[in-house]
């Protein structure tokens, strides 16, 4: 491989990147599933915001949200991983993954608040900006990971760099324990990335 000329090497890298992109695009959901998922989410939001259970209200909401979901079906369903039956997946997301996430994040948020109180009183800080890797590649998955990292104790996401084969996060850490990239990633991300990989690619 070391004897390959320079122009050929660039060409091979480009083809590899395109193959990777093609794999990701093949794994998105079909169109009708996207429309149905968007429709159900919008109906639930309509019911909560309008706060009445008369049948005229529900009828108007159903029609309007169906029209909206026909227009905007790939805004937040484009990054969901295609795996298994759609009904099983929807039930699993609603009743297993989302309560699990809320349970994890509530306790992490309480812990981070108490940690800020401890740092503010004792002033034992050692801040710095470090870089960690991530295995997620989609826009929605990276956004949720960065927001969760900001709410977990002692870390604040400054920027994300998303490329096809690797994505990196720049994190401001208030009390640096290690400078090694993989160890820092394990400490900072915890179980959140494994959780997000169940839903997003």
């Amino acid at each position: 491989m070391s004897r390959i000329p320079h122009y050929l090497k660039e060409r091979i890298e480009e083809i590899n990147k395109r193959a990777l992109l093609y794999n990701y695009e093949v794994h998105t959901l079909p169109k009708w599933e996207k429309v149905i998922i968007t429709w159900i989410a919008l109906i639930i939001f309509w019911m909560i915001v309008s706060a009445s259970i008369e049948w005229q209200n529900i009828l108007v909401g159903t029609i309007v949200t169906f029209l909206v979901s026909l227009l905007m079906y790939d805004m937040f369903t484009n990054d969901i991983r295609r795996k298994g039956n759609v009904i099983v997946k929807a039930l699993r997301i609603t009743f297993l993954y989302i309560p699990q996430y809320i349970f994890i994040m509530a306790f992490r948020l309480l812990e981070s608040n108490l940690k800020v109180l401890k740092h503010a009183i004792l002033m034992d800080i050692n801040p710095g900006i470090i870089k960690i890797d991530s295995d997620l590649h989609s826009h929605t998955g990276l956004t949720i990971l960065a927001n969760s990292i900001t709410l977990t104790p002692g870390t604040l996401t400054i920027d994300t760099v998303r490329q096809l084969d690797e994505s990196k996060l720049y994190v401001h850490w208030i009390d640096i324990e290690t400078l090694d990239r993989t160890k820092a990633g394990q400490i900072i991300k915890g179980g959140l990335e494994e959780w997000l990989k169940n839903i997003f690619w």
């Binding site: 050692n126 801040p127 710095g128 900006i129 470090i130 870089k131 400054i158 920027d159 720049y170 401001h172 640096i176 400078l179």
Partner: peptide, 14 residues
């Protein structure tokens, strides 16, 4: 500039 021990974000050229 952030106070502290290391700044990888500035070192990477952003």
């Amino acid at each position: 500039k952030p106070e502290g021990v290391i700044d990888v974000y500035a070192r990477d050229g952003f």
